[in-house]
């Protein structure tokens, strides 16, 4: 095993997946390969309906790929649940549990003892400035605050890979920028292995170490781009000329992908 393979937290190799819809088999993922190294922030960007959510369901073990392998920390986990932590697009907090209870119950699912889970939840809620709503029901929180709780819930689960599925898509532009800066700060302090999905090129360039640009369905990797900006990253990195160049590159790739699709 080479050095790079040893420190890969998530390795997806040659994964294909298809669904039968209207009696026709539709290929959603076409021999897709990607990886996330330890402590790396990797983003998938692609047009809507390019099968990113399908990929997440495969990594989560909710579904099994037609072919290919999915490894987490070197172990094959295709079709096995319970190896990732997850932050969905909607905050998905349980309305009948307190804010702290939402976090601690998720931790117990990941095998943390009940006492320790409760202590961690209250300690971290304090740390992100939500200590005084820890015992409230989630509906008292704004959309952005709910997403913070949802992110914290994913961050604290002791799992090797965090999967974030368009977590800021439902937020308004201002809240979204705020959340990106907040997440950047928290993630850079913790350095977890993250697989992130977004539609926003700026978001991908601001947050990631590496991005994979995906084609339309069936999804293939069009290009893998290493983001050169140093860490800790400033939230105004978008002012760099290199940022603009990369944005153009990604945009062009996505447009070309769309054109190729029309040409068919």
């Amino acid at each position: 095993m080479s050095e790079s393979e040893r420190s890969a937290k998530l390795e997806v190799s040659g994964v294909s997946m298809s669904y039968v819809r209207d009696r026709r088999r539709r290929l959603v993922l076409d021999r897709l390969s990607l990886n996330v190294m330890a402590g790396e922030f990797v983003t998938l960007i692609g047009p809507s309906g390019s099968g990113k959510s399908t990929l997440f369901r495969l990594i989560g073990g909710v579904e099994r790929p037609d072919e290919g392998s999915i490894r987490i920390s070197g172990r094959e986990i295709a079709g096995e649940r319970g190896h990732i932590s997850y932050m969905p697009q909607q905050a998905s907090l349980f309305p009948w549990m307190s804010v702290a209870g939402n976090i601690s119950s998720a931790l117990t699912t990941a095998g943390v003892g009940a006492k320790e889970a409760a202590a961690l939840a209250s300690q971290w809620l304090e740390r992100i400035g939500l200590g005084d709503v820890a015992k409230e029901y989630p509906h008292v929180l704004s959309g952005g605050m709910q997403q913070r709780v949802s992110f914290l819930r994913a961050l604290l689960m002791p799992r090797d890979v965090m999967c974030l599925d368009e977590p800021f898509a439902a937020l308004d532009a201002l809240t979204r920028a705020e959340m990106q800066a907040w997440l950047l700060g928290l993630w850079e302090a913790e350095r977890r292995s993250v697989l992130f999905v977004t539609h926003s090129i700026e978001e991908a360039l601001t947050l990631s170490d590496r991005i994979y640009v995906l084609s339309r369905a069936p999804a293939r990797v069009l290009r893998e781009i290493r983001i050169p900006f140093p860490r800790p990253r400033r939230a105004d990195v978008w002012k760099e000329p290199e940022f603009v160049r990369l944005k153009e590159e990604v945009l062009e790739l996505l447009q070309k992908g769309a054109e190729a699709d029309h040409a068919l």
Partner: peptide, 10 residues
Amino acid sequence: HLREYLSMIG
């Protein structure tokens, strides 16, 4: 979506 969340975290 809550059901989906629970199955994703196993």
